[in-house]
């Protein structure tokens, strides 16, 4: 009868059966709200982001926040040890989380983390990649598509310049990085489905 919300941002993957679903969600919400606020602050720091309309800023953040968090926290997934470390410092084996019914989504997250980690990005490259991720989010609901496309183009150019100038002999890194964008969209959809399923039928 225990309820499961095995997100690394949650305080604990399993809540006692005595706790109501609403209580569990509210507790989880308190855990992920600071991380979401940090993504908003990060977005504000992207040159040009705040020149977009407020509505377009909201739309990009709605579809891109989880993707940015996935990149930011991919180091919580240890592909060698097959463990996930929650933000509270507690580490869980993939096997134990899989037993809680989190297999498919976690497998995809491990796969993504391993691929991104293998690229060995520096912190400033990772930050610029997160900016590209956010501005490459779903165009659904965007009013001024031209302004978003221009910002995206500028950010991709900046990322390419940074990476190719730092590693002139490696021409594969930049395209490999862009290939992670569709992975993130797929993960975003899987993650939304999982959370919505919990909200409907925990």
């Amino acid at each position: 009868g225990a309820k499961v919300l095995a997100c690394p941002l949650n305080s604990c993957p399993v809540a006692p059966a005595s706790r109501s679903s609403q209580e569990m969600w509210e507790s989880f919400s308190q855990c992920f709200t600071p991380a979401v606020k940090e993504v908003v602050e990060f977005a504000k720091s992207i040159p040009g982001f705040q020149t977009l309309t407020q509505q377009d800023q909201v739309m990009l953040l709605k579809s891109g926040t989880f993707q940015v968090l996935m990149v930011r926290f991919c180091s919580l997934f240890d592909p060698k040890e097959r463990t996930v470390t929650f933000l509270n410092g507690q580490t869980y084996s993939l096997a134990s989380l899989r037993a809680l019914g989190m297999g498919v989504l976690l497998d995809a997250m491990f796969d993504f983390s391993e691929k991104l980690g293998s690229l060995g990005l520096e912190p400033d490259e990772m930050a610029l990649f997160m900016a590209v991720v956010l501005v490459s989010a779903d165009r659904c609901g965007i009013v001024d598509v031209g302004a978003v496309e221009q910002l995206q183009e500028n950010l991709i150019k900046a990322l390419r310049t940074l990476i190719t100038s730092r590693r002139p002999d490696d021409t594969t890194l930049f395209p490999k990085l862009l290939l992670r964008l569709p992975d993130l969209r797929t993960l975003n959809n899987q993650h939304s489905d999982k959370l919505l399923a919990f909200r409907i039928d925990p």
Binding site: T33, V36, V40, V58, L196
Partner: peptide, 27 residues
């Protein structure tokens, strides 16, 4: 469920975080 971010309460948090900035912005 075409708008998961709204259904999960994400939009509300995002709007409030953005509005905080707008309130600080000079006229």
């Amino acid at each position: 469920f075409s708008d998961p971010a709204s259904n999960l309460g994400l939009e509300d948090i995002i709007r409030k975080a953005l509005m905080g900035n707008l309130e600080d912005r000079p006229e």
